[in-house]
Simulated scan of single mutants.
Amino acid sequence: MPLNPLPRVMIEPVVRAALLEDLGRAGDLTSDAIVPADATATMVLATRQPGVLAGLDVAALAFELIDQRIEVIVAKPDGSPLSAGDVVATVRGPARALLTAERTALNFLCHLSGIATHTATVVEAVRGHKASIVCTRKTTPGLRALEKYAVRAGGGGNHRFGLDDAVLIKDNHIAISGDIRTAIERARAGVGHMVRIEVEVDTLEQLDLALAAGVDAVLLDNMSVAQLTEAVARVNGRAITEASGRVTAQTAPAVAATGVDLISVGWITHSAPILDIGLDYP
């Protein structure tokens, strides 16, 4: 599937807020004092380590919002595999503006590329199986759309984007409503016909109850490989099966081999290390 860029209207408020946070009340004291107002420069965004690129449009917008005269020449699009030393873009324009936007641009680019890179490692680990790797709602507040985009850049998919686009009945919902069937029936009565219903289950007994009540998907939470294999057999195509719970690139192949449809991984958004990318002055 092609990687569609996020609309500017979605990313500009986030980038603008990040720039305002950095500029504070007096702007870039260092660059304004040291760099002549008429100085221009050409610099490159270059990787320090291998990975997968994501967030170049966001970084470019950071430069543009500081000074529209800055030109960003893209060498590699988002989703590209990277080797150490690769130049992903060249930026040129007023030197003060380049230095002022540098850290905000890199913060986004390194963070999102880190998510794409570590997503790609898990995606690669399950290659050959039908299971798809998806992210969760465990995202940085304010950055969800960007982080879920980065997951797509790394070859993964997205679980629900928020509380408003699908029903996911979890253990606390079940406990408060009384039982799985009641929770499912209330959910079905309370949402539109286009909304899918998924139920989180911890045991095979809970799975049987959810299937009997009728659901679109089951989240098989923290089950062993043996339990997952049995769960997939019991579902037998009647619902989408999703495995979840501390899945890593090392454990993902065994989970995928059980035949589940999806494997949800929270750490690829909430804990993925950055990809080291710098702005270099040749």
Rank of each mutant, 00 (worst) to 15 (best):
Y281I: 03
D165K: 09
D221K: 03
G259Q: 08
G190I: 06
F63M: 10
D216M: 10
A120R: 15
P282C: 09
M10G: 00
D221T: 07
G85E: 14
H118P: 02
E71V: 15
G237P: 07
L45K: 05
R96V: 12
G51Q: 07
V232M: 13
N107S: 11
L219D: 03
S80E: 04
I115E: 07
A226G: 01
A226E: 15
H193A: 12
V134D: 03
T121P: 00
H173K: 11
L220Y: 08
L19F: 12
V191K: 14
S224I: 09
G55H: 04
T40N: 06
R186A: 12
V87D: 13
R196P: 00
L29R: 02
N222I: 04
P5Q: 06
P141Y: 07
N236M: 00
I174S: 13
A37I: 10
P36L: 06
A62Q: 03
A95F: 11
A145H: 13
A54L: 04
A231N: 09
V14N: 02
K130Y: 00
L19Q: 12
R137F: 04
R246Y: 07
D202W: 02
V232W: 14
A249G: 06
P94S: 13
W267Q: 08
V126Q: 07
K170D: 07
L65D: 08
K130L: 10
L6R: 01
S31N: 09
T136F: 08
E102V: 03
T140Q: 12
V235Y: 05
V9Q: 08
T258V: 12
R144T: 05
R69P: 02
D165A: 11
R8L: 15
